[in-house]
């Protein structure tokens, strides 16, 4: 292995690959379409503004719902860090499989999972396209060159790297639904607070989440009104001016609301602390599950570093 191998491909092969990539893109597009759950009969330019819900919609009594929220969060967060530490494609792919099993166990509606997959697809696609062309050529790396397009040197190691990253990202993304959608948001954040995240922050996340929906609806109504007066987005100064006005108005309205909401909180005796609703009680089973889950992560990592 002294001489780096240079494989020259005929021109039709990359054509085939491009075709496959296009197919992949279409698939991703379809994913987004499904996830968007029927943008079916909306007029053009109508973006799907709905903020995804984090609600408990799973059948009661499944594994993730019974799991003590504090332990569940700590375990899965730790596991996520173990997963992203993987270096090799094999273990990373195994992690995706494990996450997929978790999704099946949690009996989660597939739309949320698909949405998350769609959410990361852009970044990962960019990596998959760019990395093979730009990774530094290590001595010993084989190189693929296409006949006729010799200036593009395609390094399979880059593709492997991008795929590994993609697998890791997907593995963590798939876990998010079993982790978050199996307990109410308030419950999740109170659990985070017990785990040491300052209560001030978790309360802010909750408040922010509540008003996200209010402002998204507000912004949607404003955009509808703008369209009704003929606003069309183009690449020009007017569009930017209009978007700036719209954002400015959105901020003015929401900043006015901040005062009213604060008043409403004070009017009901708010003194800086939100009431606590949930009580957590961990059973031995919760701990057992945590240990088991983390062991899987550690085994993956050991396999990754020292494995076959």
């Amino acid at each position: 292995m002294t001489e780096p191998a240079v494989v020259v491909l005929p021109l039709w092969l990359p054509g085939l690959i491009l075709l496959l990539a296009a197919g992949g893109l279409v698939a991703v597009g379809l994913c987004r379409r499904w996830a968007g759950a029927a943008a079916e009969e909306t007029a053009e330019e109508e973006r799907d503004w709905s903020i995804p819900e984090l609600v408990v919609e799973t059948a009661p009594g499944n594994l993730f719902q019974r799991w003590d929220t504090r332990i569940k969060l700590a375990t899965l967060l730790g596991y996520a860090f173990l997963v992203v530490s993987l270096h090799r494609p094999g273990p990373a792919a195994a992690a995706v499989l494990i996450s997929a099993v978790a999704v099946l166990l949690a009996r989660i509606p597939s739309t949320g999972v698909l949405k998350r997959a769609a959410g990361i697809s852009g970044f990962l696609l960019m990596l998959a396209l760019i990395m093979p062309l730009t990774v530094r050529r290590h001595p010993g790396d084989p190189i693929v060159v296409i006949a006729g397009l010799e200036f593009l040197t395609f390094n399979p190691r880059g593709l492997t790297l991008a795929l590994t990253i993609g697998c890791k990202a997907l593995a963590v993304a798939l876990l998010m639904e079993p982790m978050l959608a199996t307990s109410a948001l308030g419950n999740t954040l109170e659990a985070l607070a017990r785990l040491g995240v300052p209560v001030k922050l978790t309360q802010m996340v909750l408040l922010s989440h509540r008003y996200l929906h209010v402002f998204a609806a507000e912004s949607q109504r404003m955009q509808t009104a703008m369209r009704a007066r003929g606003f069309k987005q183009r690449t020009d100064r007017r569009t930017l001016q209009t978007v700036a006005n719209f954002l400015g108005m959105l901020f003015v309205r929401s900043f006015d609301r901040t005062q009213r909401v604060q008043d409403a909180m004070l009017a009901r005796g708010f003194t800086g602390r939100f009431p606590v609703h949930h009580r957590f009680a961990a059973a031995p089973g919760d701990w057992l599950l945590a240990v088991a889950w983390l062991s899987v992560g550690v085994i993956l990592l050991l396999f990754d570093r020292f494995g076959l």
Partner: peptide, 16 residues
């Protein structure tokens, strides 16, 4: 919407 600032009705009513 100014007055319902929690993520469920129950929490909102219980707040005060």
């Amino acid at each position: 919407d100014d007055q319902l600032f929690c993520n469920s009705l129950y929490e909102d009513v219980a707040f005060g």
